[in-house]
Design a protein around this nucleic acid. Sequence first.
DNA 1: TTGTAAGCGTTATCAA
DNA 2: TTGATAACGCTTACAA
Lengths: 379, 379
Amino acid sequence: MTAPGGAARRKPARRPTIKDIARRAGVSESAVSFALNDRPGVSQETRARIRSVAQELGWQANSAARALSGERAGCAGLVLARPARTLGVESFFLQLVSGIQEVFSAHKIALLFQVVEDLDSECALYRRWWAECRVDGVLVVDPRTQDPRPQLLASLGLPAVVVGGVAGPETTEPLAAAPPVVEPSTAQPSTAQPPIAQPPFATVWADDSKAMARVLDHLYGLGHRRIVHVAGMPGLAHTERRIDSLRTEADRRGLDERHVRSVTTDYSDAEGAEATRRILDAAEPPTAIIYDNDVMAVAGASVAAERGIPVPGRLSIVAWDDSPLCRVTHPRLTALVRDTAGFGRLAAQELLAVLDGVPPRTVQGELPHLEARESTGAP
Amino acid sequence: MTAPGGAARRKPARRPTIKDIARRAGVSESAVSFALNDRPGVSQETRARIRSVAQELGWQANSAARALSGERAGCAGLVLARPARTLGVESFFLQLVSGIQEVFSAHKIALLFQVVEDLDSECALYRRWWAECRVDGVLVVDPRTQDPRPQLLASLGLPAVVVGGVAGPETTEPLAAAPPVVEPSTAQPSTAQPPIAQPPFATVWADDSKAMARVLDHLYGLGHRRIVHVAGMPGLAHTERRIDSLRTEADRRGLDERHVRSVTTDYSDAEGAEATRRILDAAEPPTAIIYDNDVMAVAGASVAAERGIPVPGRLSIVAWDDSPLCRVTHPRLTALVRDTAGFGRLAAQELLAVLDGVPPRTVQGELPHLEARESTGAP
DNA sequence: TTGTAAGCGTTATCAA
DNA sequence: TTGATAACGCTTACAA
């Protein structure tokens, strides 16, 4: 007698195993394993037969068994260390994740995703994932100039790709002889300094320097000479790159630090608005502000509106990263548009390469382009 | 001779196993297993000793081995079926996920997260995860009125919690005798119809009916008699609940369908703006619009601004779901504020309960409150 | 209270 | 080209 109807759902159709396939196809288990993994040692004919039986039974490898027998877990990890408070409006991550998964899911790789409060929790999580054999590798986002993660991951031997820039280790001690940095042939050679030589770590980055140069070309071309950059979190690699680049570009044009400068924030609308107020209160306020994300740009535009400052009449606004947000405000915001999902795809591909034993290299993402809208004009 | 220094990173510190612990503590492997899993069969003393050795070695159970030996995978799944196009600005999901993980990570449960294009891919993914033994259970989001997922999950025997409402099966055929719906004692009894009787499925939901009633109280109280609801995607359970509720509330006040009605969209800023234009073009335009998310509300406000329609002077706007967005526009938008992270926590707890064998029940989330800001006033 | 041994579903190593 | 068989690390009867 089986379980009563009501409880029948508890034990549904048993998952087929290679044993079932072997029995059904009249071969050994190892033959099945070979056939299903494209390994030699089985004839074309039996391979085909085994395949069709597997198909018929709807077999899928049990990931636990596969992971246990030394193969890959078929899983990558992504940790987002953000205080809950700053998890506000953020199109960037979902886009990135969706790009990543486009590549991963084609390779049957799952993504373990976790939001944690801070960097320490993130490191602890890497240790745990490693100890639990949960992931084959991880994608490290929000790299920092002083970043403990690459070193930790290297010491664990957990394959990783740094997404979004170059992360420096906490110590400057090299972990091993650095292999040559490979710029892919499709990438334009950067005029800016390439990523600083670092322990060998696969990296996918965007050339923020060039992007910042484009923004400055645009604003300078319109006649702006006093420009403030409302940057994101200090310590993040790309924040620092943008700040450095702004300085370089300003120097090239003979604009000193009183007229062209950066201030840092936590990316939130609150700090974006607050920074804007302080900036506009200055004796000689700027004629243009560059915001490091869309939310702050909108918040900034809102502060201008609140004070009756016409945009772009007396203040031009540029948002770094486009989103629906920039298109629903009035005026619509000029924005640096980048293909975030594409960036995610690139990162995922790079992790696959690392897992395949390709030596760590640095790959450059597509350069963002400036979409000039109504929020920028002559001062 | 070991590997040369340069390659030493490849094989880092081997993961400790219970065998290592057993050897070191001078006990058997099973004793270790018992001790570490709080199972009886080992003395307090040895348990403590084993624990300290495990701690010392930094041992963590290999999740693959644990999953393979019939235990839980220690992993839950969450699939987001959204066309990439609509992945725009969406604070809701990251908040929800962060709440979910707050509970899961305390229980050492990882979250497998995947974005797919449509419902079919979502179903395929459930099948695969089930076949691969990847997850112990899943959280089903964006439930629909006609939803194939509960039935699929039931047939697979994959434990699940429906997050955000009641999902109906594709067919009306009951899967089993429905157990009583349990409303938790903390929840206010709903005046609206409770979730329709369905196959026994754990559900976490928010009372959109009551929330809609609150919005209508607010608007009606201000004197609004012509109100349009710019809803989200048709077919989503909560969209339909809100539409139904609007009608009920309007009927109660004797407002007919010419004056109070809903239109559906895909949640995007584009459709939100487009719907707003059509609505304002009507012969007798409404004096208030309720938007089903923050992005559309901002887009709508933007359309009003573009046409020189004063808000709230000639048009009041309410956003369902608050976000920084609603606070950076001018005027700031009146919004229905809900604790999304809290909702995520509730959902996670419910899945844990289901995994622990608690029979499926319906749990109600906190009722959202209306945060009246500057975008609503007397018509 | 302890230790032994079988089993989970793969992959990998050998003989046949 | 095949088919046994031993890992992998853990849980869990069952025996001592």
